[in-house]
Design a protein around this nucleic acid. Structure first.
Lengths: 183, 183
DNA sequence: AACTCCATGTAACATGTTACATGATTCG
DNA sequence: CGAATCATGTAACATGTTACATGGAGTT
């Protein structure tokens, strides 16, 4: 029940079309939520029907027109209320860990390969998050940034993304160390 | 497309009824996959129809009869093939990080409270995983256990669960440290 | 007497994924 | 000239969640 809220939170960063939102979800928000463009289009329609976002058409030359969505006051209220609800526990769902669990009847080399790929992806993601962090900080130290008081949330979710990927790197490394030199 | 495989992997630990599987999912498997009992019943039907598990009715006195499911040879093959497929990237979906992202329009105290609750849950889960680890090791060191060669997969997924919760604890602590003494 | 545990299921609904369709523009 | 990007959508399908139903046994 809460892609809605992820969309609203993403729109806090400024108005966007469905297409632009999809990219935003791929960059900053990917860290804690994911969605396909189709989901976004469907949910934006609903959010508009519920008055939580408003849409206006922006005409463009040499480009198809686009519908740009903005948070309404009701949308902000909804977000505020949402933050007061208890968070639901996260449910893990990782393909690769299922494969790992089935290692004894599986193909160890293939699983090792997948972990190698995971490791590399995590390194790339971490590098991307680090770059995003530089942009956010804009030359200031973390303390200076936080002292400004604004946008603490986005900084902390980014921190979450970085720590999460660091953890993935640690774990993949540990698994490979155990599986790779099998003697 | 892969609760199926999580179920098959869970059945590697031995035959089980739908009800028992649900509990198994809550304990050992919860770490990397989750499912409601209803999903399990539905999927077990399908797995049986596809010949990947076989069912037999166990009559019980003073208890309702139960249908106990076992992996078939075809089920094991399916698992083997599954481990060879490339793993799909994990998609994060965390309610609480959405709330954190929306902190500036949200209710900081409520969010802080939620993080406190998360922290506590992670500590409990970690303790549970640690107990499971003791049971698995059965007095041996990690090296001795791994040298035995069997059941390496389950050990590594458990390691994953432990590291994951350790990470959650670190992150929640970091967030609280930044949000709590706001000056 | 009320509650929890065992045990299985149906039905309705919400969410997420995949495939397909369209059509112009810029870039190499 | 072909590929990628901009931009939006429909339809079908797969998965996951919630609510409800049933009924006996053991526990407090």
């Amino acid at each position: 029940m809460s892609l809605r809220h992820a969309v609203l939170a993403a729109l806090l960063e400024g108005e966007a079309s469905g297409y632009e939102l999809a990219k935003r979800f791929d960059l900053s928000v990917a860290n804690f939520w994911s969605a396909t463009p189709q989901q976004l289009y469907r949910d934006l329609e609903r959010l508009e029907a519920d008055g939580l976002v408003s849409a206006r058409v922006v005409e463009q030359q040499r480009r198809p027109n686009k519908r740009v969505f903005t948070l309404t006051a009701a949308g902000r209220d909804e977000l505020h209320t949402f933050t007061q609800e208890p968070a639901r526990p996260v449910a893990m769902r990782d393909d690769l860990l299922v494969k790992l669990q089935a290692l004894d009847v599986g193909d160890p080399e293939a699983v090792i390969k997948s972990f190698g790929a995971r490791l590399e992806r995590s390194r790339e993601k971490l590098a991307r998050y680090d770059r995003l962090r530089e942009v956010l900080l804009a030359g200031r130290t973390e303390d200076e940034y936080l002292a400004a008081g604004d946008r603490v949330g986005p900084y902390l979710t980014l921190l979450g993304g970085r720590m999460y990927e660091q953890q993935n790197i640690r774990y993949a490394t540990a698994v490979l160390n155990i599986l790779l030199p099998p003697r």
